[in-house]
Design a protein around this nucleic acid. Structure first.
Lengths: 148, 148
DNA sequence: CAAAAACTTAGAATCATTCTAAGAAGAGGG
DNA sequence: CCCTCTTCTTAGAATGATTCTAAGTTTTTG
């Protein structure tokens, strides 16, 4: 089996096939444009990069391709919870659990030592004013008496 | 010093005064409406609740009051990073550090044991598909060679 | 090749949020 | 009290990211 330098493209083709999806030039290009740099581009930025190679591509297609790549687990979306901002009077440091089935969010208390451990992961000279932690998952089948 | 049941209102008045801001019926009402329940309402939901008491209040005012409350550290915004979603090809579990000075985001590796510790905080029966961790703060004064 | 299915496209639509410009309300000084 | 300055509130317009729609293309399969 000959290995080429297009290793990641093979990944893409494989993953798409696994999901019963087609490999298209647009998907390939969007994927490559994300892999090309170790940054965190927005859809608009990706659109700009990709347009240089394929001037006819549309922004909608870029969004579509990104969604496909996320489905195939080749790319992660960073702030993907794009619903409305929510406001919270609980000022004790805590995390949020977002139930993807019900849409309900509730608070999870954070022990001091965990926060300390998280802060230790930062490189020298970096300081965190706050750490935003959100779990995404499912609650218990038999719902607890926790509220939104 | 006589303590009343309007403890939280006093908090508000105090905090506003500390920041050189006025205490208004709108700010009071928005604050009370968040304290009233232990949930995570959106601006629209707060608007709806508050409108019942003060039908002339506007959505813009609700947004303004919320911003004021956040300034005074009486309320937290949950998904406040409302810029564009960013996409990231790094599939190893990692956190993000968001530099509020430069707007730059970079990856922070997460040790397995820390993830395990986070998962242990969940109540019985809760499972997390993913945990989104974002630090907000400032990088080193002498910038490292880390990229966006 | 024909028909169905999967994709792409441009532009309209949506939704949360912010901006703008004008009007009200409170604080202080005379 | 009245004036003026500053702070707030308001309605509606504007913005910006994303999604939807409807039509056109490409691919696949029979």
């Amino acid at each position: 089996m000959a290995h080429t330098t297009t290793h990641h493209s093979d990944d893409l083709a494989q993953r798409l096939a696994d999901s019963g999806l087609r490999n298209t030039p647009q998907r390939e290009l969007v994927y490559q444009s994300i892999l090309a740099r170790r940054d965190h581009p927005t859809a608009e930025e990706i659109f700009a990069r990709v347009k240089a190679e394929m001037p006819t591509i549309s922004l909608a297609t870029v969004y579509n391709c990104l969604e496909t790549l996320i489905e195939c687990r080749l790319v992660r979306a960073v702030h993907f919870e794009r619903a409305s901002t929510r406001y919270c009077p609980n000022l004790v440091p805590h995390a949020h659990f977002h139930d993807s089935k019900t849409g309900v969010t509730h608070d999870i208390d954070l022990p001091e030592e965990l926060l300390a451990a998280l802060k230790k992961l930062l490189p020298e000279g970096y300081t965190a004013d706050m750490i935003d932690i959100t779990y995404h998952g499912r609650g218990a089948e038999k719902p607890e008496k926790l509220k939104d």
